[in-house]
Computed example of a mutant assay.
Amino acid sequence: MPVLLEVCVDSPEGLEAAIAGGADRIELCSALDLGGLTPTPGLIAAAARAPVPVYAMIRPHARSFAWTPADATAMQAEIDAVRAAGLAGVVLGAALPDGALDVTLLGTLRARALGLGATLHRVFDLVPDPAAALEAAVALGFERILTSGGAVRAEDGLAHLVALERQAAARIGIMPGSGVSAANVARIVQAVGASEVHASCREAFTTDDSKGVELGFFPARQGATSASAVQALKRALANID
């Protein structure tokens, strides 16, 4: 059975590149350099015309995963906007101050997103008890957990990913992500038994606008989604025995 490739993007050009490269699903964000935030209305509108399913990140800022009541209100409005645009799903996460999943808030967000697909994002990689968090994600009705197995790169978290896949027992998907590339995806998929993987497929570049960098408008090193990197990853997935 083919392994599905989800590609995260944060711009109209990135969206086009991911689709041109053959992505099976899109995770739509803004500010991937910050780990991905809620996409802008214009990007959501562009994604509404995509020929593949699009899941929008619901993350109003990058300061914490322990959301305030004001954050929670904003997140519910963002879910409403995603629904109104006709996108396929949302990507959610929320934590308590101790790092455990905020099951109460996640339940509220899942209820607001009723009828939409839902992925639990890498807040999961910060929880103190992954086994308990997995059971909570199942109870909340998430389709999948995006995780690196608690490591910086999924390739380095294989033992934990294998354990999570075993515990999940087909009740919820375990989607390896972080550092997934054409060079390592076969090893990750074969070790974990994953049916889907997540990648940015970005090519790094250094901006030549030194004044803009100095003023804080642009990061010195940036990344852009590459259609050729998506294609290479798709070819590597197709060649997995």
Rank of each mutant, 00 (worst) to 15 (best):
L4D: 11
L5W: 07
V7G: 05
S11M: 07
G14V: 04
E16G: 01
A18S: 00
A18H: 03
I19H: 04
G21C: 04
G21L: 03
A23K: 10
D24Y: 13
R25V: 13
R25P: 06
E27S: 05
C29T: 02
L32I: 09
G36V: 12
L37G: 01
T40G: 00
L43I: 00
A47C: 05
A48K: 04
R49T: 13
P51G: 08
V54M: 11
A56M: 04
I58G: 04
I58M: 09
I58T: 03
R59V: 05
A62Q: 14
P69N: 03
A70Q: 15
D71T: 08
D71L: 07
M75Q: 14
Q76D: 09
D80Y: 00
V82G: 01
A85F: 02
A85M: 09
L87W: 10
A88C: 11
L96E: 14
L101R: 05
L106G: 05
L106Y: 12
G107A: 10
R110T: 14
R112K: 15
R112A: 15
G115S: 04
T119P: 00
H121I: 09
H121E: 03
L126H: 12
L126W: 04
V127P: 13
P128M: 00
A132G: 14
A133V: 02
L134W: 04
F142Q: 10
E143C: 03
T147R: 14
T147Q: 13
T147M: 08
T147W: 05
G149Q: 07
A151T: 00
V152M: 13
R153T: 01
A154L: 08
A159R: 12
G177S: 06
G177C: 07
S181E: 14
V185K: 06
R187M: 08
I188L: 11
A191T: 15
E196A: 15
V197G: 08
S200D: 13
C201F: 09
F205N: 07
D209P: 04
K211A: 15
V213D: 12
E214I: 02
L215M: 15
F217Y: 15
F217S: 10
A220Q: 14
A224I: 04
S226I: 01
S228V: 15
S228E: 14
A229N: 01
K234Q: 11
K234L: 02
L237G: 00
D241R: 15
